[in-house]
Computed example of a mutant assay.
Amino acid sequence: MDRKLSPEELQDLFAWIDKIPLLGPKKREGIANDFSDGVMAARVVKQFFPELVDLHNYIPAISIKEKVKNWTLLNRKVFSKLGFLLLESTIRKIALNTVGAVMPVLRILREKIETKLEHSSDNTLVGTACMPVIKPELDSSTEPKEMMKNSTDAYPAFKHIPEEEKQTVETLQETVEKLQIKVSLLEGLLHLKDNAMEDLMRYLEEYKARLTDQQLM
């Protein structure tokens, strides 16, 4: 997370920030100060996921203590739900307006927001696939014999298919529909699992790096 961003990455990130209505255009040289108390970061998440953030909990601050408090709350209540956490040392660097400290965090935040938005879209598709198959309603005034007559008139081949075989075909069609729904659901779950594995591997690498830093101290 402490990796220095390239000029192209910074430009792309600034362009993304400028498009967020709750923030408005930001001066490049003042970005560290603007985000130092965590309020702007809370507004970023609020723009995309209003239910995750209560802006009343994040008060503009000047003191380092209050800035750290805002970021710690954001870390615990919001970032954890997006799938990442900041180290205490990173939070303190941001609160101290350390040059270059906040941009890698905003990059990760952007990635997590976009990932969650993508997952939300996938879940919508999965949910749609799991909806029961609704068959056309039949006119209650039509007698069963009349319905069968209409079917055989429209499809003469049905006249030569025994009733038992017709029922078997209908049963198989229903089974195929159910299996297709299950396949769609499993594909969605597999996609979520792959993303979860990527997040876990990233956490593991960060944990190993932190242990290495502690051993070198």
Rank of each mutant, 00 (worst) to 15 (best):
D213T: 07
P25W: 06
R92F: 09
H191W: 08
K26M: 12
T212D: 13
D37M: 02
M40F: 13
L200C: 06
K145I: 12
E114T: 09
Q11D: 14
P50Q: 08
A15V: 02
E187P: 01
Q180P: 09
D18E: 15
E143P: 01
Q47V: 04
L190S: 10
D122V: 07
K19S: 07
A15Q: 13
N123P: 01
L74T: 00
T171S: 08
H56K: 12
L172I: 05
T124I: 14
V99Q: 11
G127K: 11
A101E: 03
V183S: 01
F49S: 04
E8N: 11
N75T: 04
R92L: 09
P162I: 05
P156M: 14
E174A: 15
K4V: 13
K46L: 14
R107A: 00
L55T: 12
M197V: 15
P25H: 02
S120D: 15
S121M: 13
V102W: 00
L96N: 10
N57E: 11
I31E: 01
K81G: 02
E198T: 11
G30I: 02
R202E: 15
L22K: 09
A61N: 00
Q167A: 15
K182C: 03
V176G: 05
K145Y: 14
D12I: 02
P156H: 05
Q214S: 06
R43E: 04
D2R: 12
F48D: 00
L192A: 05
E187H: 04
I134S: 14
N70V: 01
T152K: 12
E29V: 07
T128M: 08
W71Q: 02
Y207K: 09
Y58L: 01
L185Y: 10
E8K: 08
M1V: 05
T171C: 06
M148K: 06
I17G: 00
P104E: 03
L82Y: 02
L185E: 10
Q215K: 09
L138S: 07
M217S: 14
S121P: 04
A157C: 11
E8T: 12
K19R: 13
I134P: 01
A15H: 12
K69D: 03
P50R: 05
D194V: 14
K145A: 10
E137M: 10
K69N: 06
I62F: 15
L86T: 03
A154F: 11
E165C: 04
V39L: 02
S121Y: 15
I161P: 03
Y207D: 12
D199C: 08
K77N: 13
V39C: 00
S121H: 15
E8L: 15
G83R: 02
T168Q: 13
V53F: 04
A42W: 01
D153S: 08
V99R: 10
A42V: 03
N57K: 10
A101H: 01
D2M: 11
E9L: 00
I59Q: 10
S89R: 14
P7Y: 06
L186H: 03
S63N: 06
P144W: 05
I20P: 01
L192C: 04
K67W: 06
N97Q: 09
N75Q: 08
L106I: 07
S80C: 07
L73A: 05
N123I: 08
H191M: 14
G38W: 00
V99Y: 03
R43W: 01
L22D: 13
E170M: 13
K19T: 10
L125N: 07
R28C: 05
E170Q: 11
G188S: 05
A129F: 10
S121N: 11
